[in-house]
């Protein structure tokens, strides 16, 4: 499912930017993973508390709803970096050279166009829930224990902003490949044929099992 593809690296500015951003993205992914793990502990605490102590975790649903944006959105740029977001590559897999880079460039620019608007919209969504004059700066709260929602809403524009940076790097990478007619450009996920892609994916599962 995860169609990750290799990203080449060298000593160029572009590649250094790529790796710099990757460090941030990997950090975000780890936070997201830890948030998944905490879902598990929350449930154990909730069920255990209910069955053993008659003290269910107060606001269990509220806490989960606060965690979900962390899990579901924060790593969006990490997945864009190596092309994990799925697509139909029936057509692109048959392209090569400049035609391919042109295609990829247009696609990345379209995503960037989309993301600029979503950045605006999600920021506005955050602002509507945020009020410097209110207690806890909150103008929107969860149903059960009244947690302020703005921190969770703020995560979305943050994640999208990082994705915009990533898209700029990729646009640069593809643009450079297009202009210079490169065969193996850095800082962008390379198109593999489906089989090679699957092999790479199976590789990530390691040898255990």
């Amino acid at each position: 499912m995860a169609g990750a593809a290799p990203v080449l690296e060298d000593g160029s500015v572009l590649s250094r930017l790529d790796r710099g951003l990757l460090r941030l993205e990997r950090g975000f992914a780890l936070i997201a993973g830890l948030a998944v793990l905490s879902l598990m502990f929350l449930a154990v605490r909730s069920v255990g508390g209910r069955l053993l102590l008659n003290a269910p975790l107060s606001g269990y649903v509220d806490w989960i709803m606060q965690l979900m944006p962390l899990i579901a959105i924060l790593a969006v740029s990490f997945a864009q970096r190596d092309g994990t977001h799925i697509r139909m590559d029936l057509l692109v897999a048959h392209l090569g050279g400049r035609a391919l880079w042109l295609f990829e460039l247009i696609s990345v620019l379209l995503i960037l166009f989309l993301m600029v608007f979503l950045l605006w919209g999600s920021w506005a969504h955050f602002l509507r829930s945020f009020d410097l004059a209110a207690p806890l700066w909150s103008r929107d709260s969860t149903i059960d224990i009244g947690l302020p929602i703005w921190p969770a809403k703020l995560l979305v524009p943050v994640a999208i902003f990082v994705l915009c940076l990533r898209l700029c790097i990729q646009a640069w990478g593809y643009g450079r490949a297009l202009v210079l007619g490169l065969a193996n450009p850095v800082a962008v996920p390379l198109v593999q044929d489906a089989a090679a892609q699957a092999a790479a994916e199976a590789e990530t599962l390691g040898e255990k099992g």
């Binding site: 209110a134 909150s138 103008r139 929107d140 709260s141 149903i143 009244g146 302020p148």
Partner: peptide, 8 residues
């Protein structure tokens, strides 16, 4: 409903 989001 008011109770869905008291802070709003």
């Amino acid at each position: 409903c008011a109770g869905y989001h008291p802070d709003k």
